[in-house]
Design a protein around this nucleic acid. Sequence first.
DNA 1: TGAACATATGAACAAATGATCATATGTAAT
DNA 2: ATTACATATGATCATTTGTTCATATGTTCA
Lengths: 123, 123
Amino acid sequence: MKDEPEQDRCSCSIVHEGPVASARAAEAPVSRLLDLAELFKVLGDPSRLRILNALGAAELCVCDLSVALDMSQSAVSHQLAVLRGARLVRARRDGKSMFYALDDDHVREIVGIATTHLDERKG
Amino acid sequence: MKDEPEQDRCSCSIVHEGPVASARAAEAPVSRLLDLAELFKVLGDPSRLRILNALGAAELCVCDLSVALDMSQSAVSHQLAVLRGARLVRARRDGKSMFYALDDDHVREIVGIATTHLDERKG
DNA sequence: TGAACATATGAACAAATGATCATATGTAAT
DNA sequence: ATTACATATGATCATTTGTTCATATGTTCA
């Protein structure tokens, strides 16, 4: 993602003007792509996926997650902050504990489809 | 994702045994999580999303993409290699050109749901 | 108020990542 | 074969990322 003048990016002659025009027309807004990439980036980490997976089964506090996933409290907390930033989980305080839960069902859907993709592609 | 003995990961007493047990039971296989994370990681980059988006509109060769997205040929090629590795795009040679296309429709679905998520969460 | 517990956060550091540059591979036409 | 074009790939480097350690914030109870 650099911002340079549009020229000699490629030494070739544009072989297929139609498709290129289509591609340009279909170009999504930059802000939208950045948001999407950010969301996927958040999903693109095993530790965070484990947390999401665990929260898919039950609402859990930081300590629970730490124990269940065998991660340090600090690591869990840091990752929960990231997940919270992406609106993937929501927090609720109850006394000294902070309970986390999936914020909506989109996560399940996305993970479900991604899993299907993996199943079909690999084995 | 560290591999350490399961002990004193957290100084707290396990407040909620039931949920923790559920979480443990629901724990997905590590290999599966790694694959999933890898897939999302690939989707978690604006340049690659732009490429996928463009390919969603039409089959394009490297040069087309380079021009349409104003990226260097090298950058496009590198990212296409990553996308190919994740089985998200497929390549077809025609003469000197290599044509790329989305490998299946899961990408569209995933991006669609993610977009919905963004729409509902942000504005 | 003070002690103990639960969570959050900042600094630091190793590892991973994405772009660029230079160059190699592959294809077609002369 | 040689030249030109299209794409792939290796090396390098600045940036980002995830974990750990240390410490701060917040809550409950004595």
